[in-house]
Nucleic acid binder design. Sequence first.
DNA 1: GATGAATGAGGATTCATTCAT
DNA 2: AATGAATGAATCCTCATTCAT
Lengths: 212, 212, 212, 212
Amino acid sequence: MNRRMARAGKKTDDSALSTRERILLSSERLFAEKGFAGTAIRDIAADVGLNPASLYNHFPGKQELYEAVLDRALAPVAEIVREIAEAGEGETDLMIIDRIVDHFARRPEWATLLQHETLAGGESITRLAGRWLAPIYEQALGAIRRSPGVASWQDEDLPLLICGMHNMVLGYFSMAPFLERMLGQDPRSPEALDRQKLFLRQAAARMLGREV
Amino acid sequence: MNRRMARAGKKTDDSALSTRERILLSSERLFAEKGFAGTAIRDIAADVGLNPASLYNHFPGKQELYEAVLDRALAPVAEIVREIAEAGEGETDLMIIDRIVDHFARRPEWATLLQHETLAGGESITRLAGRWLAPIYEQALGAIRRSPGVASWQDEDLPLLICGMHNMVLGYFSMAPFLERMLGQDPRSPEALDRQKLFLRQAAARMLGREV
Amino acid sequence: MNRRMARAGKKTDDSALSTRERILLSSERLFAEKGFAGTAIRDIAADVGLNPASLYNHFPGKQELYEAVLDRALAPVAEIVREIAEAGEGETDLMIIDRIVDHFARRPEWATLLQHETLAGGESITRLAGRWLAPIYEQALGAIRRSPGVASWQDEDLPLLICGMHNMVLGYFSMAPFLERMLGQDPRSPEALDRQKLFLRQAAARMLGREV
Amino acid sequence: MNRRMARAGKKTDDSALSTRERILLSSERLFAEKGFAGTAIRDIAADVGLNPASLYNHFPGKQELYEAVLDRALAPVAEIVREIAEAGEGETDLMIIDRIVDHFARRPEWATLLQHETLAGGESITRLAGRWLAPIYEQALGAIRRSPGVASWQDEDLPLLICGMHNMVLGYFSMAPFLERMLGQDPRSPEALDRQKLFLRQAAARMLGREV
DNA sequence: GATGAATGAGGATTCATTCAT
DNA sequence: AATGAATGAATCCTCATTCAT
């Protein structure tokens, strides 16, 4: 019985979670922090409080574990975008921002993971684009085209607009350690996140020439 | 005799460059692509066409090589910001965007490198913040405060604004592989970069409530 | 012992056999094919359709399982030789060959297992020699000495003769995959085995200067 | 400077040999003794007196090392058979036996290696057959067909005859540890080998109905 | 400067085995 | 009897680095 309850430090809270879940949580955090190559299976195992060999009872390998982590982080995003797109109409394009910020605010690691994957480019981007980014992008393009104020942009600017918003949303989380240093406040605190949501809505509104 | 001129592929052009320079170019590309942990000294050496041991005649170790690469990528940015800030006055805050885009356009790897460092957080961010990010941030804060239109934002939003612009500028480069897939056009081509510069200037202007 | 046919693949026939039996059959095949070191408990378990842990309900460990398999394969051989030696007299020395070929023909894996053990030398051979090979060898030496025609050989050649016959008999089975390739016919088919028995009897007769 | 001169024990004599050569010698011995799966890279390295990692400076991996060892052992055999076949005529079919025994007598490990490969069957035999066994077999078939006395056999027996001789020759070496136990004499000693050569020539002659 | 060879540390994964259920 | 989960000890191999040449 080598479970430890009530860990003190920063380590992910496990308590009564299934081993698989605990592995995913630790992996999530470590992959987000150090990327795929920088994270050792043994580090994950240590974080979970498990022998490295035991990990292989739950996931067939590092790559598969990584992909399971990514899936968990990104599947909901696609879902959000799809929902909003279906709901259609109105000011939904700004709502989407809130929802996505909320999603990543729940686990800022998810934002970092996605950025890591994006940076890896090449093969990674192919997988990523095929499964998540492309659908999200298409939905976003559709939504933004239905958005009032979009006429002030040329059609060729829309991808850049989407890309820019995407980077503003995601980048906030990856810059969190820096922002924390600069502002002396945790950018992942509820208040900070509220401010950021407000800011993003403002920014989006202004870029689309609308009032908030 | 392991060098041939007129390479076809994507490999960095070396020809008559100094070995040190060739190492830096290869490192730059590989670190940008795969991050620090994901890049092996032997891969860099192979890319340069050198024995791994020979690298150590030029740099004392992997870490130092990495830092040399980072220095090369970031020192000019600090320089740009400083210059513009000194020039002071007027519409300079939009000029800065162009200058920075131009800087990273020259070597998109530099943008990716910086993003990798940012993502690494923790220790990395400490080094990064101490040496480059913090000064840049301060300059940018100063510049933006002198900027007309800034009054439409609250003071606490300014860091978010800077952070947002930063991410829009940098993120464009790291999303290049994805954008290329989506648009069917190389986002690093001069035309694409011109459009992006125009877009960024528009976006900044709108966010500051100004005409371009 | 009730055997039910309806076998499809090459997998050992299980159906209504006891689990212990099914484990022995799978082990036999896998140990014969890949040797002791090359066979993983989990492979055997998978072949049986069992959890690796379950194997330990039937055998205390890999080594013991291996030895049980060897016992099953070799005990009958010793038996055959003993019987024939007891029966004594006459042309029995050629009968022995038929009997042994028949024994190994029933399960060619047994021949391969024995060869693997022989190759392993050292400790293996000590075990093997102590338990089976030495008795068989002694019996064979006795039988051959009573054999007409043996006078054409010097006494010191007899061990070589036994060894040679042994290798001809056993080697046929281990070369089966090669022979199959070369002859385009399964060397383990009844017809092929009949021919081989005939050939071996011929060969033995000729070496002993007798008519068949 | 971590070389040790003049090892005492059974370990392969290295002295002034190249590291590559010493690796091959140790591998040869260990692979022959324990087979591919039973031999650990670290054991080979220890036997050579080298760090396991250093092995990889000389061979790209275990498999390749194994194949290099096999090549060294078998290439000469094919050569011998080819030479003799070209020389053609006369009693060459018995000479071939001497030559082959001599080849394997120089390094009995080679015989064991070949037997291991043969036993492995499947993929191994495919490689083996394609590269060495099949050519040897074809040459031997040709030689034996030109051999006086062959008429006493049916054509379909010839493969069995070749196979039988092959196994008598090779099997002698793999049974060496057993023979040593039984005879109290080293079967690899020059005298023992001479006797075995004589025996094999006798056996072959008798099987072909000829005088020696 | 460049290189081949060497190496300790680590990295992913496999293996035989145990144990609670 | 069977199994899922756990584990220490290997196993193959990679890595950054050193050093003699």
